[in-house]
Write a protein that binds this DNA or RNA. Structure first.
Length: 480
RNA sequence: GGCGCCGUGGCCAAGUGGUAAGGCAGAGGACUGCAAAUCCUCUAUCCCCGGUUCGAAUCCGGGCGGCGCCUCCA
């Protein structure tokens, strides 16, 4: 089976073939470190994680680089307002973004380059563009890319350049471009830049890089001249990625990225969300409300990345229940009795079907919704098998467990919920003592005493489950 | 105004020419001292109208409705 991806550049779904068979180089546009990332950002980053995990699951050797933008208009302004250097301002946000990514089970990528560490590379790109007459300098020391010298400009976003020119509102032309459509590669230094340390020397003048240039420099330096995959949110198609292509290909003469994947923006409770509107919720907010990370992750994966996804509390509740079902199945099958002489069941077939269906769904442009459905079909049917089976053949049980784990290598749901089940030892001891006391009461058929203990535990958020092998307990989960 | 997306059961969401995956909720059942938890079973003809086709949720045309990008933004 082969992976197919919807390539924004081609406007259709294509077979995926990396430049070098078996190896994939990926660059994902990361966040700007000027504030907390919101849940919409994390739809994109969880998608990156899905791409990362799935390609590795398929056996590719993956190099995945996601940048952290730490110098741009917003970070400079914020650092100036707080009276600190750029690095002082951005570092805490970088830390928090990575922490929250960890919470959601986003596996660490290979590298998180920061723009300020690649100034030299950026200067080189600009120099090459100047040498090739694809860019020009202005009086204040800025450098602009000359769009008229790059015929395929507009191909990614599919826009008509002439119309764009006419429709464009001519904004305050601070840096003196020749054409409103030209974009800044380098911005001549201003006093506020100097104040926060956001100014570097370059042959044509002191200044700082344009936002688009940062990504090109980091991608070319850390992934290579031709990326297999370039990922980003849909808002980046124009102008960010369009400009990345122009400056990268202008500098190298090579195809910059073969496949461009763009994640549709998330909505929250039916409304558009964006940093500028200020209506964003963060992972931290959700955790404080008691929402489980696995529920968040589940909801973010519940729709295919190119379709609309409305992030809601009701949806989180549903996701939480769904994850619980998965976890319960995992526990159940691991504990199901085995016997060497157990008769064969359909479990092996079900396991094969699950893997096959999952693979097919994910190969079809990373359809995580269909992929998760494949897993849940397995859970449902395997549960029915367990209902009807006293004991399993050890090999069958082993196989079923392995398939569950295998699919979770990509989805990362069980992995996450297991991680959050860690409880401190003293609590554990106390709970277990209470459970023993209750067991004694139950043996005496003193139901009143037994129920009082259960209530006592419930007050501390501990839920009991009486089963065949004794009483199990767990912490009550909050919403989601 | 330009470009583009979407409209599937109470909610979320797959399926894109061969007769509706999955999750949540709901109902029924199993289990239980009672519970909780868990498991099983059941519940749709796909916004409307017209067309193409042996056959359409799936293709075409027209409506109605929702949304995104075009500006810093994942």
């Amino acid at each position: 089976m082969g992976l197919r991806l919807h390539n924004t550049l081609a406007r259709r779904t294509e077979d995926f073939h990396p430049v070098v068979a078996g190896r994939v180089g990926i660059y994902g546009c990361g966040p700007t470190a000027y504030g907390p990332a919101h849940i919409g950002n994390f739809r994109t980053f969880v998608f990156y994680d899905l791409v990362h995990r799935y390609l590795e699951w398929k056996g590719y050797q993956v190099r995945f680089v996601m940048n952290l933008t730490d110098v741009d208009d917003k970070t400079i302004r914020a650092a100036r307002d707080e009276g600190v250097s750029l690095g002082h301002y951005t570092q805490p946000w970088v830390d928090r973004i990575l922490e929250e990514a960890d919470v959601l089970g986003i596996r660490r990528f290979d590298l998180y380059p920061r723009a300020t560490n690649y100034i030299e590379e950026m200067v080189q790109i600009v120099q090459r563009l100047l040498d090739r007459d694809l860019a020009y300098t202005t009086e204040d020391g800025s450098v602009f890319f000359d769009i008229s010298a790059f015929p395929t400009y507009g191909r990614l976003s599919g826009r008509d350049l002439e119309k764009a020119r006419q429709g464009e509102r001519v904004s305050a032309d601070e840096y003196g471009k020749e054409d409103v459509r030209d974009f800044a590669l380098w911005k001549g230094t201003k006093p506020e830049d100097e104040k926060v340390g956001a100014a570097w020397d370059a042959p044509w003048g002191r200044g700082r890089p344009g936002w688009h240039l940062e990504c090109s420099a980091m991608a070319l330096a850390e992934v290579g001249e031709t990326l297999d995959l370039h990922l980003g949110g849909e808002d980046l198609i124009f102008p960010h990625h369009e400009d990345e292509i122009a400056q990268s290909e202008g500098a190298t003469g090579r195809t910059f990225a073969r496949y461009w994947l763009h994640v549709k923006h998330l909505r929250v409770e039916g409304k558009k969300m964006s940093k500028s509107l200020g209506n964003f919720i963060t992972v931290g907010d959700l955790l404080e409300e008691g929402v489980s990370p696995a529920a968040i992750r589940h909801q973010l994966l519940s729709a295919q990345y190119r379709s609309e996804l409305n992030f809601t509390r009701a949806g989180l509740e549903a996701s939480s229940r769904a994850v619980r079902r998965l976890v319960a199945f995992g526990e159940r099958i691991r504990e199901h009795p085995v016997a060497a002489d157990a008769p064969p069941t359909s479990l092996l077939d079900l396991a094969d079907q699950a893997t096959e269906a999952f693979n097919r769904a994910m190969d079809d442009d990373l359809n995580s919704a269909a992929g998760m459905a494949a897993l849940f079909i397995f859970v449902k049917r395997a549960n029915a098998v367990l209902d009807a089976t006293e004991a399993l053949d050890p090999g069958e049980r082993e196989r079923a467990v392995r398939v569950l784990e295998s699919l979770d290598q990509v989805l990362g749901l069980l992995e996450l919920s297991e991680r959050s089940h860690v409880v401190d030892a003293s609590l554990r001891e106390w709970v277990e003592e209470r459970i023993r006391a209750r067991a004694g009461a139950r043996e005496r058929k003193d139901w009143g005493a037994a129920d009082r203990i259960r209530d006592e535990l419930a007050e501390r958020g501990i839920v009991l489950e009486d089963g065949e092998g004794g009483t199990r307990w767990k912490r009550e989960e909050g919403v989601g």
